[in-house]
Design a protein around this nucleic acid. Structure first.
Lengths: 354, 354
DNA sequence: TTGTAAGCGTTATCAT
DNA sequence: ATGATAACGCTTACAA
């Protein structure tokens, strides 16, 4: 009852239809030409036998594989899973499938996964590169003729299309808004880890989206007359405990910090919980803005103001670019910047009088 | 600069290493035997040439493919993306990769995806079957010798291992708790669609997890002396508007409904928003319990009591079962029931006096 | 231990 | 329009 029946081949169908293997293959593969009679005979034979083509073999001889590799930082994160959905929907419409891998935002894993995917001879790669300073593996993919599209991140040195948000500008929008209602001491909190817990050189930030946003933050804050904005960037908010520590440091600051920007929605949620655990009232005692319009930001009171990153669209665009490349588009690599508007909600209030 | 260099083969390496193709293949494939000298020569040649094996070809000749197909209802839903993460982590440890597909909870898409994945000759399949009454495609997979594991759902008629929660019991736990604090009129809300908006025959519920929970609900409610518990099951909460309608109907009921169970975390979030939009106070005016410990349930006030479905573990177990099958385990199919404990939080309060 | 040669299931070339 | 037949890149008897 549990048959490991080594599936049927075109040869079997050909035999049943009393034509040559070549003719059967032409009909089944939908290429070349065949007479109506032959076509009918073959299709009928295939039907009754229950023939299922072997895409492995097909890819072997054609050289192209119908599989696209996707490497994200963390599929559990709605930011990425939503993007993956966009990718998936778009790819399917082009008859492509998707092999998915998690880098856990670790370079070593990303390298490993690229290698695995290349071995599988994927038709193309969509990657959220973990570290803009290590690109050999991605360059190797390109050199092997496998198109690459970067997702959410842009690496100029790579000959690849990129889909990303307007990170630097989005920070500007947030800060302008906060400035309008009187905020001056504003904290930026990110998960990024540094050796000493302090913000280092900007060039050392491997994830371009993070680098862009912090750069924007520093620029705009300086323009607004804040002395040492780097002191307002808090790094290392990687988990609950670390974030708790960061919040403590923020609350101890003098002059008092009146608003917090959370670099992503995981951090945002943690910060929100910390603040409400400590009994702080939003937005009277603290304003909060997070990146990504996650579910949780709409059930809090007040609801949380967010920078809306339409990641489903990120995914769509990425897949579309890749498909274009697969179809032969050989134009120079482009960066597609997707607007990430500020969604105003109750978590921004007037700054406390200092 | 953009080379479509048709990658190197074992033959190229063999030539460079001055050995036969077979010897090179043996070394590179890590099978058979080779002298130390040969081994060194081959590896060195492979290294300097930059040889990358072709897994497609390998699968072709060995018959096994190193790829596992996963079909979920909606990768955007944290319930599934978390499970996928569990699957991914576990598979990787066994040197397997994962092709992922979305069924959008539609049978037709599921059938299509199974077919695509079988064509790709995946080694195995992990599926959250959309409809327990249509199994031909999954049976075909089994017949072709491809092991199948069902995720979150169990279909007895299928010769496949199943990983699922203790759905029926979990409803019991929830209801018992609610009963203790005085609730009698309790609503169960699900996304499931029916033709007339009413609950039909239980056997017609295609998703086993939903069927089990509703069955449990009806049984326990009856045991608690509620007359027509079916009237307390609200179906069709598929989107924001539909859920709004359901909530209206719930609030209009007499005798008044004092507690709501949300069949999944998307519905739970929608219901919560509806309730707070209407100014109802949790838990004084309404109690709420949701399935799945989603992020949003921990940032509301009060926090939402949930039935904790450890879906990462669901995924892990599913992958482990599949790996066991791939290794040749031929024992009869088993159902692995994973406990889904009730996490008590502030959203349960004493029932209003009626 | 090593090499020769025959597959795996397609596609693709070239006569017929 | 159709049919032999040779690839594709690997594994795997079987021989040497």
């Amino acid at each position: 009852m549990s048959g490991k029946k080594s599936s049927l081949t075109v040869a079997d169908v050909a035999r049943a239809a009393k034509v040559s293997k070549a003719t059967a293959a032409r009909v089944l593969g939908g290429y070349g030409i065949a007479s109506e009679t032959a076509r009918k005979a073959v299709l009928e034979a295939a039907e009754t036998l229950g023939y299922q083509p072997n895409d492995l073999a097909r890819s072997m001889s054609t050289g192209r594989s119908g599989l696209v590799g996707v490497i994200v930082g963390d599929i559990e994160n709605a930011f990425f899973s939503q993007a993956v959905r966009g990718i998936s929907d778009t790819l399917r419409a082009a008859d492509l499938n998707l092999i998915i891998s998690n880098s856990s935002e670790r370079l070593s894993e990303e390298i490993e996964m690229v290698s695995v995917l290349l071995r599988q001879r994927v038709a193309g790669l969509i990657v959220a590169p973990t570290d803009a300073r290590h690109l050999d593996h991605l360059k190797a993919a390109l050199a092997a003729g496998t198109p690459v599209v970067t997702l959410d991140r842009h690496v100029p040195e790579l000959e690849a299309d990129a889909i990303c948000g307007d990170d630097r500008e989005s920070v500007g929008r947030v800060l302008r808004r906060l400035h309008e209602v009187g905020h001056r001491q504003i904290a930026y909190v990110t998960a990024m880890e540094t050796t000493d817990g302090k913000l280092g050189k900007l060039e050392d930030i491997g994830i371009s989206a993070v680098r862009e946003r912090i750069t924007g933050f520093l620029t705009h804050m300086r323009e607004a007359g804040v002395e040492k904005p780097a002191n307002l960037v808090f790094v290392g908010a990687t988990g609950d405990d670390e974030t708790s520590l960061v919040v403590t440091r923020i609350l101890e600051r003098s002059p008092p910090i009146t608003a917090i920007l959370a670099s992503d929605s995981l951090i945002g949620a943690r910060i929100f919980r910390e603040l409400s655990d400590r009994g702080l009232k939003l937005p009277q005692e603290m304003s909060l803005v997070s990146w990504f319009d996650a579910d949780w930001t709409r059930v809090t009171s007040p609801r949380i103001c967010v920078v809306d990153q339409p990641t489903y669209r990120f995914g769509q665009e990425a897949a579309e670019r890749l498909i274009a490349r697969l179809k032969g588009d050989a134009s120079p690599p482009q960066v597609f910047v997707i607007p990430t508007p500020l969604l105003e909600r109750g978590s921004i209030g007037a700054a406390r009088s200092d």
